[in-house]
Design a binder for these strands. Sequence first.
DNA 1: CGCACAACTTGACACTGACAAGATTGCACG
DNA 2: CGTGCAATCTTGTCAGTGTCAAGTTGTGCG
Lengths: 200, 200
Amino acid sequence: MSSSKASANEKSPSGRPYHHGDLRRAILATALDVIAADGPSGLSLRDLARRAGVSHAAPAHHFKDRAGLLTAIAAEGFGLLATALREAADLKEAGVRYVRFAREHPAHFQVMFAPELLRTGDLELATARALAGDALREAVAAVPPRGRGTDARLAGVAAWSLAHGFATLLLSHNLDDPLGDQDPEEMFRTMAAMLFRHAE
Amino acid sequence: MSSSKASANEKSPSGRPYHHGDLRRAILATALDVIAADGPSGLSLRDLARRAGVSHAAPAHHFKDRAGLLTAIAAEGFGLLATALREAADLKEAGVRYVRFAREHPAHFQVMFAPELLRTGDLELATARALAGDALREAVAAVPPRGRGTDARLAGVAAWSLAHGFATLLLSHNLDDPLGDQDPEEMFRTMAAMLFRHAE
DNA sequence: CGCACAACTTGACACTGACAAGATTGCACG
DNA sequence: CGTGCAATCTTGTCAGTGTCAAGTTGTGCG
């Protein structure tokens, strides 16, 4: 019965490598679902293994640790965020994309900013994070410096704080009431227009 | 020595700590230290029991669950935040106090906004949260409505997002570089002044 | 063809949260 | 002045978890 299991595993009946195909991707995908639903604390390597139909220690082979898995997710997230930010025309649009990223990839977003769950020294993570940081700074630098005395660093932190706070409160369901049925991105756009009026 | 400690415990004449003196408070205090150091995921009821010198199941008697303990912390946090916000003169000052609260009570702050770790239905939590919400809305309402078309709800969400994002990024060590040795509260004040210039 | 290596399994250990059932202790109340 | 009583804490246990070590199994590559 165990031999039939391999073929019973849907999708590609023939070409699929025997062991599992690509466990790494399967585990990552399931992990994202679980985190989006129950947060990082609801994640269990053994549960992921169970859902993938492999033995309990299989995940550890791809990601060493629980921290390793989360680090991989965070790195992937920073990569996705970097490309999303790069496509933005101006700073306000970058903010909108930041918020959109958080909504479309809530699991990535949560993990990216939970350093105590990550291997902060990880190289892949560090480079991905640096990439996203560059994209952010680039977006900030694009806005022409208004009145002297304003410093790009300050404006950058302000813009980041606004977008990050909005996204975080959104994900933790703290804006459900004030939003009503309004579109979050639209609301953020209005907010940004209000606050950065003279900065654009 | 231990007998005097029991009497030193204020408040209600009836329900009160007996054996340990004040286990509930001791556990809460230690829990805050642990969370501030390692995040909520680093928290273990058994470890808390060990540090308090009691048996492994003792904490469960005061806080039913792990979620119960965290819920108590969150409720306490919302209470502290509410009083901190009430003391603020204007909206900008409320923001500064929000940031200060996050820095002075990092454990509370983290737990307050991690709903998946909490018993969200808890009554004590709900009332404390409502209290803090009122304080926030009050601070927002205090700023005179400028140009027509601006809506207090929007300004409130904007102010909250800015303060919350700044505080969150601060605690997750994402502003270490841009800050340098600058005082976070001072930087926030500058940011708020810049963004809310015409709103004050 | 065969062999080394990556992918996975099996087994074990220490740790955790949760529950149940008992022991201790000081307070209320007769 | 007891004596019941309930709050507090202990002991014991169970299922679940992360992690390590050692085996097994296919697969691709020389």
